[in-house]
Nucleic acid binder design. Structure first.
Lengths: 247, 247
DNA sequence: ATAAATTTGTCCGTATGTATT
DNA sequence: GAATACATACGGACAAATTTA
């Protein structure tokens, strides 16, 4: 019942102590207060800092090792597997591949699902269609250097872009697909950014662990006549990505 | 895709089922798929949708009631306490007060701390000063309608803006303070957006509960000659704010 | 106005997971 | 690793408040 620090961890909060500790360690690494020189303090030190048992710290570290954030070496210590965030630029000419070209070797966009559906209200509004008009819904997973960067859902007017999904599968790129339909260029009209806890589908698709955060962007792209051609909601893994805005 | 009702929640993941359910409900509310007409489906229905026991759903709802997201009435149902996020616009002319003017009654920026310090490297870089040159550091708390919206730390060249903090205390506004120094206008050069778990200081200052998320913006403002005059890091409560970018 | 159906609130007991010593 | 205490999840039964028929 000895307690050096305060009760830093919240009990009865619905989040297991070991997971709270794991999140704190992750945070400490990302803002540089922990893991000086790539080496984590010994388990005993951490358990005192967080006011929990050493077993609990071990459970946290074990989870982070599993996740690839840490690497534990018996007798030597626990080390940080460093990796910096990708900077994803948001401009009038936002495109997935070109934006990350300088920072990554390999980029790929996979089509997870495709359906034609009646436009939900917010989609119809954004695309300036009648509510219920047929639209393509494409769910995609974007990878860069083998890491799952983002999960996106995009809607396109099915009347204007018949068979869009097939073209996308063939080209592997939104930009190239638009070109096939005579849209040689398009611009980002607006972007809404928010952040939340990853939901079950985020966890599954982006291979995140519970408690992880996603950056959510909701965007509208226009053709050069100012007509909306794409409405999309994208979930970025917040650990992997930051957004840059040049105004 | 219709959810069958099994295996949606992650067991043994370190996050209690009731908390996962709570997060899903919160998500469902914010994207409009749940809480049709302000009313949540009955507990039995939710428990079937999520594939958990009714008691588990009750635990989730109870937490959200505590949080002020929901309101439960015996015999009637459970209702959504609507409070929409503030849309914080990021443009070339980003200013706190004007940005939220249409959405809130009262806005205030409080000065929490002020020191003059030698510029840390990243600050010196951004402001194009010698490393270690004297800079003001102002830590502020922004409120709108009594809610803590964001916590900001800004740096200003102490040589160019002597006594900046005093002027800020007097005027209560960055824009007005700049005007006193002959800077009638300024523009947002760049903004970096990321998201992370709130740290101890965020929790304290913004009155958040553990596990909460903050949107972090790192921004540089230039005067009209293109010289950087302000470097700032702002933490927004992700539950209260979303960022809008018009490009 | 009354009864039935709905929906939230409370209680019991039991099994399993989590955290500490 | 073992023993202990507490938190979480489930199942069932019933009470209380409200709406519907």
């Amino acid at each position: 019942m000895e307690q050096t620090g305060e009760d830093l961890m919240e009990r009865r909060s619905g989040v297991a102590l070991w997971r709270q500790v794991a999140d704190r360690i992750r945070l400490g690494i990302s803002n540089g207060t922990l893991g000086e020189g790539g080496r984590l303090p010994p388990e005993i030190t951490l358990s005192q800092q967080f006011g929990v048992n050493r077993h609990t710290v071990r459970a946290a570290i074990s989870a982070l090792v599993q996740e690839g954030v840490l690497r534990a070496e018996q007798g030597r210590g626990t080390f940080v597997e460093s990796r910096k965030r990708l900077a994803y630029p948001i401009t009038t000419r936002t495109r997935f591949s070109t934006g990350l070209k300088d920072q990554t070797r390999a980029r790929r966009v996979n089509l997870l699902r495709h359906v034609v559906e009646p436009a939900p209200t917010r989609v119809a509004e954004a695309l300036q269609l009648e509510p219920g008009a047929p639209v393509h819904r494409l769910e995609t997973l974007s990878e860069a250097d083998g890491r799952c960067v983002s999960r996106g859902t995009s809607w396109f007017d099915a009347t204007r872009f018949p068979g869009f999904a097939d073209v996308f599968v063939e080209t592997g790129s939104i930009t190239a697909s638009f070109a096939r339909f005579g849209v040689d260029d398009y611009v980002r009209r607006s972007t809404l950014v928010s952040a939340r806890h990853a939901d079950a589908e985020d966890l599954d698709t982006l291979k995140l662990s519970p408690g992880a955060i996603v950056l959510v962007t909701i965007a509208i792209n226009d053709d050069l006549d100012g007509r909306p051609i794409q409405f999309s909601e994208t979930h970025f893994s917040a650990d992997l990505v930051e957004l840059t805005i040049e105004t």
